[in-house]
């Protein structure tokens, strides 16, 4: 029978780096990554799962990390915004966000980039409608999204 516990040793790989920590069962993945692992690129913009600022790719799947417990991610491979650029070299998508002024305050940007990254992996040439649909779970309060659509589209085509 599996153990029932209020805290647990958790091993995760984040952006290729393995971490092992003892975690309270109640801790959300987003808090674990931000507070315990000090990877503060992913953000928190709501407390109801609406905003997507906390979006990460967990075992290949885009999720909002504020609705996942850290203990649920035990053994998982996690990708966050910090893992996109290599050696400070922006990905085409990151560069496109800058080129198209798809970010203002930049608070939504990490989540937005993860959602767009997930989209482009499965659909390298998305239509406008597919882009909107793919970003539906990420709120941006600064840009009105239009430039974000353009940025994603430019990478696609």
């Amino acid at each position: 029978m599996s153990a029932i516990a209020s805290s647990k040793a958790v091993t995760v790989t984040v952006n290729g780096v393995e971490y092992e920590r003892e975690v309270e069962a109640r801790k959300l993945l987003i808090h674990f990554v931000r507070d315990d692992l000090d990877l503060t690129g992913s953000h928190i913009g709501c407390d109801t799962g609406n905003c997507g600022a906390c979006s990460m790719i967990v075992d290949g799947q885009l999720v909002k990390s504020c609705m996942l417990l850290a203990v649920q991610a035990d053994g998982a491979s996690i990708e966050t915004v910090e893992g996109l650029a290599e050696d400070g070299e922006l990905t085409a998508l990151q560069q496109s966000f800058s080129d198209h002024h798809a970010l203002q305050c930049g608070y939504c940007t990490p989540g937005m980039l993860m959602s767009a990254t997930a989209l482009l992996r499965t659909n390298p040439n998305p239509t406008d409608e597919q882009i909107k649909k793919a970003l539906q779970g990420n709120i941006c309060r600064c840009t009105g999204y239009w430039n974000i659509f353009e940025a994603v589209k430019a990478v696609g085509s």
């Binding site: 503060t40 690129g41 953000h43 966050t80 915004v81 800058s98 930049g106």
Partner: peptide, 22 residues
């Protein structure tokens, strides 16, 4: 419309927002 200086850190999750400070 030159590239924004802020973007390099913000697109990499390297901004420092208040809740990032410990």
């Amino acid at each position: 419309s030159v590239p924004r200086k802020e973007d390099k850190r913000l697109t990499q999750g390297q901004g420092v927002f208040v809740d990032d400070i410990k």
